[in-house]
Design a protein around this nucleic acid. Structure first.
Lengths: 201, 201, 201, 201
DNA sequence: AATGAATGAGAATTCATTCAT
DNA sequence: AATGAATGAATTCTCATTCAT
């Protein structure tokens, strides 16, 4: 005390966390290879050797960030697992709320999201996991006859993952659309399709 | 003979093309920063200075690849511009054929596609251009009452671009699905949606 | 003790100065392009990256040396500005003392002098400044009627600069003549000329 | 014939001479190390291997230029050797005419002069030779009592060489003064000195 | 807990020069 | 007499990482 809050560059936060924070920003912005340890520590107000007090290297801190993202993402999807018994009318709204949570999470962890979703070598793996989770759910709905039988649900899942990825970057992170809006629109699009049924014959 | 006279100038061109080929592969596989000129030339069977005979630097050859991709992509979309007068029934098949061409192009230029679509700094720009092109077409259909009025077509376009991106990598490049299949499935999904209308009501 | 506390920051400074010293010697001896960073650091007992700890590049360290030379030279001439009110008899002795200081400075900074006077791209600029300074003084004396009216003082200044340049290299740096001797001889030559007036007419 | 004058980049001149010409310009402008063979041949309208048809290397062509300069300079001074028996009145005019020839030679061979006088490693040697030649003449005049006895003629010679060097660059090559003017001014300055004898005593 | 100083290993780039034709 | 193609040998500079304090 008296000490606390005094340190340059890390007002109240521990150095390690300060480094992680800055690193997330740098990695998110510049990617792995273009991010320099020297820049991270400079921005944190520390020196290079201090960095190695907390992390064994560049790869290590990056992995730590990726893992954080992955874990929190897993936690999220664990909760939002769709209960199997759903009546038709609640289904979409249920999915919507899952998507909202996802977009909110992304929104609240923009740097981590960019890293884990776009930058990391493991991002493909992470998306793969999401896709599998999603596919399972879609298949369940399909089996329950809520979704068309003639669709390849893996392809559908892949489409949705791709859509989420782009919307996150282009609409969510730009503050153009809120998690709610995006969730609703996605469900709307994928549920009902583009076709105008009114005019149909 | 027939050969003669062509010889002199052609070996250099061959070298240049060989370099471009290998470079595309390396960039596609390892990204810009991890790709080393030394590896490229070694694989081409040349030495480093020869590289500089044909390209002014690493950045330059990368740009050349990106430009090639972009230009060929533009040519492609130029042709496939939807004619405005279409009756309802042809519309999807028309879109399908456009998508087929796109996927075929991607399939035939996998390295370039990875570079221009995922690796280049300009890849966002390139996708943006595709999105705009797509949005315009979608809006036209919407105005003509083929598509629902209540959809934000930019969001739809973003979804489709995202979907194309993922399917290209996960289904097309893995040889799991053909351009035809992918085109059909995409149109099917986005046109009619997931909802099983049979059971509805 | 007494030492302590000073230690930490000072070794870096010593390295920097050591580098500067060796660099001055190398540049003076071999010119800019033939001087190799690798040689400089090797002679300093350091490795290449250490060099970049203190200087941003080859150009930068060279400029630093040139600037040092230029600045010290400016300081020198600032002091030795001739006071305008001088009676005839003191004039030469006054000029002599200015020249002595100049030659002493050159003698004490041989490497820097070679760099700033002969090697740097800016050396022409530096001489130009000296020439202008000298011309002004000469013009003042001319106006005061100490010097002949029919001489183009800029030409005279140019001659003197040229003479100083050569004498510095060929007489001063070879230890053939002292600053005093050179200053006296120059003043003698330019003041009275070669002509033997005794025998005249 | 029919052939003649047809060659690109060497209208009527032989390739070797064309190369020498361009090389002189390049060396004069950029110095030895910054001059690139590739630039020389490009400007000559030839290719690099052609260069090696005529010269064994960069060093060789440079030496050839330096030798040309040196030889022509020697020829010049051979002619203008002062005859020993001179009466007082002709002396200066005789020296003047020697200087005029020198400046004219420099003016007509600007590139060579820059190379041989400022750029070549041997330029010091060349100036040394000039200085010795000059010193001898000055000593002769001194012995004949035309020049003051108390001057160190080597120092004087050094001054004059320095003066010639600077005036050549700053007045002659800039077209500010003609050979005649420069020769006259130099003789005037060194012969009679700056001192205004009118006001003296 | 933190730092000033230093480095190993590598990467891009340049240029004079040569070979085969 | 001339060239397209290619290269050996340097050289500058960068960056993650460590040592001694």
């Amino acid at each position: 005390m008296g000490q606390r809050g005094r340190r340059k560059g890390s007002i109240g936060i521990k150095s390690k966390e300060a480094i992680l924070m800055v690193a997330a920003e740098e990695f998110a912005e510049h990617g792995f290879h273009q991010t320099k340890i020297s820049t991270i520590v400079k921005r944190t107000g520390l020196t290079q050797p201090s960095f190695y007090l907390y992390f064994s290297g560049k790869e290590a801190i990056f992995q730590e960030l990726v893992h954080t993202f992955r874990n929190e993402l897993i936690n999220l999807t664990k909760d939002s697992r769709l209960e199997s018994s759903l009546d038709n009318s609640v289904l979409p709204s249920n999915i919507v709320s899952g998507l909202i949570k996802l977009f909110e999470f992304f929104y609240n962890h923009q740097h981590l999201t960019r890293i884990g979703f776009y930058i990391a070598d493991e991002s493909e793996e992470i998306k793969q996991a999401m896709k599998e989770h999603l596919t399972e759910n879609l298949l369940a709905e399909q089996r329950d006859n809520y979704f068309r039988e003639d669709l390849d649900m893996e392809t559908v899942a892949e489409c949705i993952i791709g859509a989420i990825g782009r919307l996150t970057i282009k609409k969510l992170f730009t503050n153009e659309k809120s998690p709610q809006q995006l969730a609703n629109e996605i469900v709307d699009i994928y549920f009902y399709g583009l076709q105008n049924r009114e005019t149909m014959h």
